[in-house]
Design a protein around this nucleic acid. Structure first.
Length: 551
DNA sequence: ATGTACACTTAGTACCTCGCAA
DNA sequence: TTGCGAGGTACTAAGTGTACAT
């Protein structure tokens, strides 16, 4: 018997769960697309794939050549050699797209009771799959739903985008479950699981091969709120914290090697420096059939520009094809070393040609037990969060303190290069805020005029009263007193400042994704400690409330 | 030393929900 | 009552890193 994961520790003693939920079978709609202007008959299977493409009309993918070619190639396999459809250019998916829009509209038009009812029905069906028992403890399952068929949405310039991701069947699925637990009933009549195993050195409940990349495996894991996930999360942050004790000697170590005669040592030193200073990812080698992205070890000469006297400009696509664009001042020795590594190499050549992630990590392990490249990102995040929170938190309202936390969160996100697409509604929201500010400013000006008038009137009246003893007329009495106007004025002024801050904050964060760092990089213990010290209720944030219980 | 299978973390986006202001 | 924005969840792609085979 092949022993898999032999070194892996035991993760559980008993494991009980109910398997996975399959997406419902395809329901044909019968809407005919056009080919060369004529309606065409499609079998349900053919129609299903056509529909997958049709509904993506308003995405970027729909106009990408690679996507279209891959889709069409896979679809034609299903259409068969003799089918009338042979040219993509003659296909008109609009009828199906419009059907899709009207279905969407129908759903939107449902009353809130109907929506609620169907939601409840669904959650009732899902209920038994949502939970697992790990060593007798009820834990939430993460992704118990099997991925539905669809067109592959690879990020960046992925050579496989648009390929048909076929339907997963029970015979694709391996179930991992406790020996004594009942094997989940296969929910599709007449079919059965590929395999049932009882491996307690792993944490997954089910897996199948990714149909796009057959050598890749998709897993069903427990949710982040489970103690198994919480445990390894805690270990991750503990390791990052330990790096604090080692960082001085690690830095001394690589600094010494910047000028090493041994090219490999020198490259390791410079790479470690970049990972430490810039929180770059390790950068594993990638296959030809994946998007062309890089990390530290895979940086190519064209990704780094040396700007005299000692600046480096980085420009490359990293994970998820997110652009990393940054100019930094580095130690002169690093600058010289990079220049030397790049010298004489052709475009596409690796800056660190004597290096890969395995070698780098092996070296890091010598410096600190369990140290790998990714720990530096967690470490950087922890240091940044801690520093900003300590430096910037002042006595003030809870809202003001929360703003400080958000600023720290933002800095971490920037360091980790967590970006997002500018929200679709960004421009219109900015316009609205500008209009709001204009409106408030006009209000303010108006109030100032009124206030001035009211004050004048008051002093006039005072004079008059001395002379005549007037009690003022009814019309005047309805007007606001200067005090009231003053109060209103300061309210408006506050709102102007608030709205302006809100606007600037929104603009500032339009391309920054805060969520990833919050979930994966901000040590909950730092957050919780800060909340306690500064009397910010932890339950303001659901994420940390959950983790607080777990940690 | 290098390649690869496997397991697990990290990532951005689409969508959904809920509370609030208009 | 509605429409909208913030914030959360679901989804699944894309990384990292280890163990083992070659």
């Amino acid at each position: 018997m092949k022993i898999i994961n032999a070194g892996g520790a035991k993760k559980w003693s008993t494991l009980v769960h109910n398997g996975v939920v399959f997406p419902p079978p395809y329901k044909p709609h019968g809407v005919k697309m056009l080919y060369n202007g004529q309606p065409v008959d499609l079998t349900p299977e053919q129609e299903e794939v056509a529909t997958m493409f049709a509904v993506m009309k308003d995405t970027e993918y729909a106009s990408k050549e690679t996507f279209i070619n891959n889709f069409f190639t896979d679809w034609r396999k299903i259409l068969g050699k003799t089918h009338v459809i042979t040219k993509f250019e003659l296909c008109d998916f609009t009828p199906i797209y419009e059907w899709h829009l009207s279905e969407k509209e129908k759903k939107k038009q449902m009353t809130s009771e109907e929506k609620k009812a169907s939601r409840e029905e669904k959650s009732q069906q899902d209920e038994k799959f949502m939970w697992a028992f790990v060593d007798g403890v009820k834990e939430k399952v993460g992704n118990f739903r099997v991925e539905p068929p669809g067109l592959f949405r690879g990020r960046g310039e992925h050579p496989k985008m648009g390929r048909l991701k076929r339907r997963i069947r029970p015979s694709d699925i391996t179930i991992n479950i406790g020996e004594e637990a009942p094997v989940p009933v296969c929910p599709i009549p007449g079919e059965s699981w590929k395999e049932v195993k009882h491996d307690n050195t792993v944490t997954w409940l089910a897996c199948w091969n990714d149909p796009i990349n057959e050598k890749d495996i998709k897993y069903v894991f427990l949710a982040a709120s489970s103690s198994l996930k919480g445990q390894s999360d805690k270990e991750k942050y503990e390791k990052a914290r330990k790096l604090k004790d080692y960082i001085r000697s690690i830095r001394a170590n690589y600094t010494k090697d910047f000028r090493s005669k041994d090219q490999r040592k020198k490259q390791i030193a410079v790479a470690t420096y970049l990972i430490d200073k810039l929180a770059l990812r390790a950068g594993d080698e990638k296959d030809e059939d994946e998007a062309d992205t890089v990390g530290c070890c895979t940086l190519k000469v064209e990704n780094v520009t040396c700007l005299p006297p000692n600046k480096l400009q980085f420009d490359f696509l990293g994970k998820d094809s997110i652009r990393y664009y940054n100019t930094v001042e580095v130690e002169l020795a690093v600058y010289e070393a990079i220049k030397e590594f790049c010298a004489g190499k052709k475009k596409g050549g690796h800056v660190f040609d004597k290096l890969d992630t395995t070698k780098l990590n092996a070296h890091l392990k010598d410096l600190m037990p369990g140290l790998t490249a990714k720990v530096f990102r967690t470490y950087d995040a922890s240091i940044t969060l801690d520093t900003i929170l300590n430096k910037e938190t002042t006595d003030g309202t809870v809202d003001e303190k929360a703003k400080v936390y958000q600023r720290a969160n933002k800095e971490v996100a920037i360091i980790c290069n967590h970006q997002r697409a500018v929200p679709k509604s960004h421009d219109s929201q900015m316009n609205k805020l500008n209009e709001k500010i204009d409106e408030l400013t006009a209000q303010r000006d108006q109030l100032n005029v009124e206030l001035e008038k009211a004050n004048k009137l008051l002093s006039k009246k005072a004079k008059k009263r001395k002379l005549v003893g007037s009690d003022g007329d009814a019309k005047r009495r309805r007007k606001l007193t200067p005090e009231m106007l003053q109060k209103k004025l300061s309210q408006v002024e506050t709102r102007i400042v608030e709205t302006d801050n809100h606007k600037n904050n929104k603009e500032d964060l339009k391309t920054v994704a805060l969520g990833t760092s919050k979930i994966n990089y901000l040590d909950p213990r730092i957050t919780v400690a800060w909340c306690k010290t500064h009397e910010v209720p932890i339950d303001r944030d659901k994420h940390f409330t959950v983790l607080n219980k777990l940690f």
